[in-house]
């Protein structure tokens, strides 16, 4: 029984993009070494209004518009991190990470190791990625696997406003270079959250079971989490009870939560927007089989876009991305009728 003192905090709506602003504001108030750099992060407040109000509150030293020089200012942020600041860097679109691969892969990820542990590189780089908004081939990619392949980096991909808040705050307090891959299609989405304190942290490196189920484990990433949950809710009416796991951190990956779910369900579906060859799904399946090649009762399945760039035309992009229908259809094929509820 609840006593009046542990009344839950009042639920208030929080938008995905406002979770970004809120995380930054709280962490910048908490630690004066936290600074924010990027294109249009200053007075304009950003294209998704994600940095609105921060320049006014923290001033031009700590919230600074950069010229269009992704490699230059990412590297600059790393130099600043090595000398005592904790920069947050915005790269508008995930696709533009190709313009700053060297600072991320050869500098940030390796400096601590190469320099004998003398430095830390506490940078949080966030970017808006993935598809679903008809942005075409150069503005819709999910490159998470690339960075999960590099030792020395952490990679997170929040699937909700609440997770964005908690994961970003942890990222900013983390002493490593953390890439936060946000989902453009979730930017305006909102949900009710009951967090009224400014210390809400979600630890990096831990998956979350978003829905408990018994027949099949669905590992869904980013914007696919919501779609998987919606699919699971309808399928439940058909007697299929899916467990949904959101890794939240892609590197280091919390495989244990997935393995213990599979002990129960014996069936694995992975849904992500990134390409399937050499991807996170491939890695999860490899880890599962390495752990116990007899764990699965049926072949694992990856549901991803086809191996082609993301098409622009709305009808094509709808077909391209996994959605509630394709997830449902796949799950129906995976769970035999005689095993359903």
């Amino acid at each position: 029984m609840k006593t009046p003192t542990d009344q839950p905090a009042l639920e208030k709506p929080l938008k995905y993009y406002s979770a970004v602003t809120r995380a930054f504001r709280e962490e910048m108030r908490r630690d004066e070494n936290v600074v924010l750099l990027g294109e249009d992060v200053g007075p304009s407040g950003g294209i998704f209004a994600q940095t609105r109000g921060l320049h006014k509150e923290f001033g031009p030293d700590r919230v600074r518009d950069t010229p269009i020089a992704e490699a230059g200012f990412t590297s600059l942020a790393i130099g600043a991190a090595m000398t005592g600041l904790r920069p947050i860097v915005e790269i508008g679109f995930e696709d533009f990470l190709t313009a700053c691969m060297d600072p991320i892969v050869n500098q940030a990820a390796k400096l601590r190791y190469m320099l004998g542990g003398q430095v830390k590189v506490p940078v949080t780089l966030y970017t808006f990625g993935s598809g679903g908004v008809n942005a075409g081939p150069q503005h819709s990619q999910s490159l998470s696997a690339w960075f999960s392949h590099i030792p020395g980096l952490k990679v997170i991909q929040p699937s909700s406003a609440r997770d964005t808040l908690g994961l970003l705050k942890s990222a900013i307090r983390d002493d490593n270079f953390v890439l936060c891959l946000l989902c453009k299609s979730l930017v305006g989405s909102k949900e009710l959250v009951d967090i009224d304190n400014d210390d809400f942290l979600i630890p990096l490196g831990r998956s979350e079971v978003k829905r408990v189920g018994q027949h099949v484990t669905v590992v869904a990433i980013g914007a696919m989490v919501r779609r998987a949950i919606e699919a699971a809710e309808t399928l439940y009416l058909e007697g299929i009870d899916a467990e949904i796991i959101d890794p939240r951190t892609l590197s280091p990956l919390d495989i244990r939560t997935i393995l213990s779910s599979l002990e129960k369900t014996k069936r694995l579906l992975i849904v992500h927007e990134a390409m399937s060859p050499c991807g996170i799904g491939a890695e999860i399946i490899a880890k599962v089989i390495e752990h116990n090649h007899k764990l699965l009762a049926s072949p694992p399945v990856r549901l991803t876009p086809p191996f082609a760039p993301s098409p622009f035309s709305p009808g094509l992009e709808d077909l391209y991305l996994p959605n509630q229908d394709s997830i449902s259809e796949t799950l129906r094929n995976m769970v035999p009728e005689n095993e359903r509820l």
């Binding site: 600059l76 130099g79 600043a80 090595m82 000398t83 500098q107």
Partner: peptide, 28 residues
């Protein structure tokens, strides 16, 4: 590197010394 005497590191990637130094200058 010897951070204690201000050496933020030699670097194997040509050109990176410049923006990294700008980062240290930004901190200052």
């Amino acid at each position: 590197a010897d951070v204690a005497v201000g050496v933020l590191g030699a670097n194997g990637i040509v050109g990176q010394s410049a923006p990294l130094a700008c980062g240290a200058a930004y901190t200052a």
